[in-house]
């Protein structure tokens, strides 16, 4: 039986960009049903769990990618291979890929990129070939460009300082591309900019969370249809319901 709070073992961990780590966790991944969902990881010594998006799931392997942004994620990066961590698994609504449009576009910004990888694989399974635009601050921050390319997708990288790929923001690159639907995840200013230049799509949000499963109301945002909990009613919102 699938556990909603399984123990998974760290079976691999590597640094893939500046302060960014890719960790493979092995164990019961059954609670994860959609790309774009997240897990809440209990890190020894910290009261609150850390919400980390799911990059990809393959059988009993769960890949997460996270950036060291504070003491909790720093401690997570230091956990050795072989150690087990307790997750609340399969949290959040995830991306809806049932009716993908003709020309989907994937837009990732910084550590918002990981959940879009698992999503890309699902969209490809549906018979579509999304273009991928990834935006980073600088060359040292870039990751997963090759992994997306390995899926057979066209990948465009932008950096704010121009040290790699095209200089500028993801929205500068989006002008050159033909798409009718966006799937995006990244920092708030980027989401807002993508919202401004797109007409339809799904946007993955981030907010400081308490529980991660809809009980505490700490991560509530406004939407066209009333308050939404980012952890439970999100993290994915449809473009048309977003209120800035």
């Amino acid at each position: 039986m699938t556990s909603k709070m399984p123990l998974l073992q760290i079976t691999a961990s590597r640094r893939i960009a500046k302060d960014v780590y890719e960790t493979v966790l092995t164990g019961d991944t059954g609670a994860i049903t959609r790309p774009g969902q997240f897990v809440q990881i209990r890190i020894p010594g910290f009261y609150l769990r850390r919400p980390i998006s799911v990059c990809d799931v393959a059988g009993d392997k769960l890949i997460i990618i996270y950036k060291i942004l504070g003491k909790g994620t720093a401690a997570l990066a230091k956990l050795p291979v072989g150690e087990s961590v307790e997750l609340l698994s399969g949290l959040g609504n995830g991306f809806m890929v049932d009716d993908v449009y003709e020309k989907p576009l994937i837009v990732g910004g910084g550590v918002g990129t990981p959940p879009l990888f698992g999503l890309a694989k699902k969209i490809i399974e549906k018979g579509f070939t999304p273009d991928v635009v990834l935006g980073f601050a600088s060359k040292d921050d870039v990751f997963y460009e090759e992994e997306f390319r390995t899926l057979g997708l066209d990948v465009y990288v932008t950096t704010n300082d121009g040290s790699y790929g095209t200089q500028g923001f993801v929205t500068d690159k989006m002008k050159d591309l033909d798409y009718d639907y966006v799937f995006t995840c990244g920092p708030m200013p980027m989401l807002k900019a993508v919202h401004g230049v797109s007409t339809d799509g799904q946007f993955s949000f981030e907010e400081r969370m308490g529980c991660g499963f809809g009980a505490c109301m700490c991560c509530t945002c406004e939407s066209k249809y009333g308050p939404k909990r980012i952890c439970k009613d999100g993290p994915i919102l449809f473009r048309e319901e977003i209120v800035w």
Binding site: Y47, G210, C216, M217, C218, T220
Partner: peptide, 30 residues
């Protein structure tokens, strides 16, 4: 959950901060 006469959205986010062996919340009676 604490209930008031009218619906309340509550306070702006962030509404939560971690502490040693605890947490601070400022949900604001949503």
């Amino acid at each position: 959950k604490g209930t008031t006469e009218s619906a309340r959205f509550g306070n702006p986010t962030p509404r939560v901060a971690e502490c040693t062996a605890g947490m601070i919340n400022s949900v604001g009676l949503q």
